[in-house]
């Protein structure tokens, strides 16, 4: 079993890479979710895959959410007619508001010593508003069912 603190460190690195690609100066909940989907061998990764959520499927859902939210205001990424900007030379390391909430929510499940990657996934899925729940809804994924699967998975692995 991967030690939880090592997993968190790797996840923040992965999330930082995703944030850098997005041009975001902070790591947000959606970047952690993408990172989870990229890190194999965990309960969180297996549960996401079982729900059809590999990294690309999550990225597609997030792109769709972005377009959908822009369309509410009458905009589209088609407004971006200039050549794409170069990415920042360093990946961000600072957690944004949504990522901080992920950790706060996860830590309700126990001390870091007793936490598993699945608890962090629960911390992401507990958000009922924001980018991730909207992206999952647009992708036809039930957040409630996914949370139930994660809870089963962390309970069975704790046995």
């Amino acid at each position: 079993m991967v030690m939880f603190h090592k997993y968190v460190r790797t996840l923040i690195d992965e999330g930082g890479d995703e944030a850098q690609q997005d041009g975001s100066s902070t790591i947000e909940a959606q970047h952690l979710l993408l990172g989870m989907a990229a890190l194999e061998g965990t309960d969180a990764h297996r549960t996401l895959l079982a729900a059809g959520l590999d990294r690309q499927a999550i990225r597609d859902a997030l792109d769709r959410e972005y377009e959908h939210s822009l369309s509410v205001a009458g905009f589209s990424t088609a407004a971006l007619t200039l050549p794409r900007a170069s990415v920042e030379p360093k990946r961000p390391t600072q957690l944004g508001a949504s990522a901080k909430l992920v950790f706060e929510r996860s830590f309700k499940y126990g001390t870091p010593k007793h936490l598993r990657p699945g608890h962090l996934l629960l911390g992401i899925l507990e958000a009922s508003v924001g980018t991730v729940p909207r992206a999952l809804k647009l992708a036809g994924v039930s957040r409630g069912e996914l949370m139930a699967r994660v809870l089963d998975s962390v309970a069975s692995e704790a046995d």
Binding site: Y66, S69, L80, V129, G140
Partner: peptide, 28 residues
């Protein structure tokens, strides 16, 4: 994965998400 169409409405959740998306678009 089945895709679900969400109609464009002026629900607070949609309006707030639009603000977040517009900030991201403006940054880009």
């Amino acid at each position: 994965m089945p895709a679900v169409e969400i109609p464009t409405t002026q629900e607070p959740a949609d309006a707030l998400a639009a603000v977040a998306a517009l900030r991201r678009l403006a940054d880009q």
